[in-house]
């Protein structure tokens, strides 16, 4: 089996009861109890006023976790090629468009339309950070985090350079919520390099496997893992928070899963 390796140098995290990596790390490591609460999204101050006003939850989430990871990794966001993955993009925007198109007056708002592209959030990321580096914008439904992680590893391995993964999901309003229930939002970002540096926390060695995916003993975390695609990353984040050598298996496609060996730096 092929093994892809990278060093993780910065993490961004925002989810119910997980307000950033520094606080989230202690909760994930078990030194503080997990109490799911509503996510407070920071105002995206890097965006120009017009874009800031238009920015939706997924844009704010993307900027928050991406910037947290890049800052922790000590790297200028503008210099980072990026992998962006979301299981379905901005559901509120999509709902508004579909509702208008099903009405007698099909005139949809031009802003709604240009925000409907799956790469809207990474587009705003580029505008906010001034990053002109390449962005791979991916979707793989429930396999989205795994797909993003593989692309990150392929990018770091092939380019022998730093890259940033941002995985974000926000819930859909009804009636889409009825066919795609997601209880809340979750965002995670990983800044990675091929070689270790002063910021490196852990080396990850990744391969595809048929092993079963890990579940989490905390029922709150496990509920989150099962219900939000980007939270499929939680076994990895928990193992990093525990700062021990470990092997975790993440959900990916059908019977194909992703095994990750963690070697703390």
């Amino acid at each position: 089996m092929t093994i892809l390796a990278a060093y993780l140098n910065g993490i961004g995290l925002l989810g119910p009861g997980l307000p950033g990596w520094q606080a989230g790390k202690r909760i994930l490591a078990g030194s503080q109890p997990y109490l799911p609460t509503t996510v407070n999204l920071p105002v995206p101050v890097l965006l120009p006023p017009a874009e800031r006003r238009r920015s939706s939850a997924i844009v704010k989430l993307t900027l928050a976790v991406g910037l947290e990871a890049a800052t922790a990794a000590g790297i200028e966001p503008a210099a980072l090629p990026c992998v962006y993955v979301s299981s379905g993009g901005d559901g509120h925007n999509c709902h508004e468009i579909c509702q208008t198109l099903a009405s007698d007056d099909r005139h949809i708002s031009p802003t709604r339309f240009h925000n409907s592209v799956h790469n809207a959030a990474p587009g705003y990321w580029g505008i906010a950070t001034g990053s002109m580096t390449p962005v791979s914008v991916l979707a793989a439904f429930d396999a989205s985090f795994g797909a993003g992680l593989l692309e990150l590893l392929a990018m770091v391995t092939a380019n022998r350079a730093a890259a940033l993964l941002i995985a974000c999901d926000t819930p859909y309003p009804e009636p889409l919520h009825g066919v795609r229930p997601m209880p809340g939002m979750f965002g995670v970002a990983l800044a990675a390099t091929a070689e270790p540096n002063a910021h490196s926390m852990v080396q990850i060695r990744v391969e595809l496997t048929r092993d079963r995916a890990d579940t989490l003993t905390d029922i709150g975390f496990e509920a989150l893992r099962r219900s939000i695609p980007s939270a499929r990353s939680l076994p990895l984040l928990q193992a990093i928070a525990q700062t021990q050598a470990a092997r975790v298996t993440l959900d990916y496609l059908d019977r194909t899963r992703i095994a990750i060996e963690l070697i703390p730096c």
């Binding site: 979707a139 797909a147 496609l253 194909t256």
Partner: peptide, 24 residues
């Protein structure tokens, strides 16, 4: 049954598939 993904960056989507495949 190998890795599978959709790329969705508007009108560059299916040009970028060549880059992702090449890297992988």
């Amino acid at each position: 049954t190998g890795p599978a993904v959709a790329l969705s960056s508007a009108c560059s989507s299916s040009a970028k598939v060549f880059g992702s495949a090449q890297r992988m």
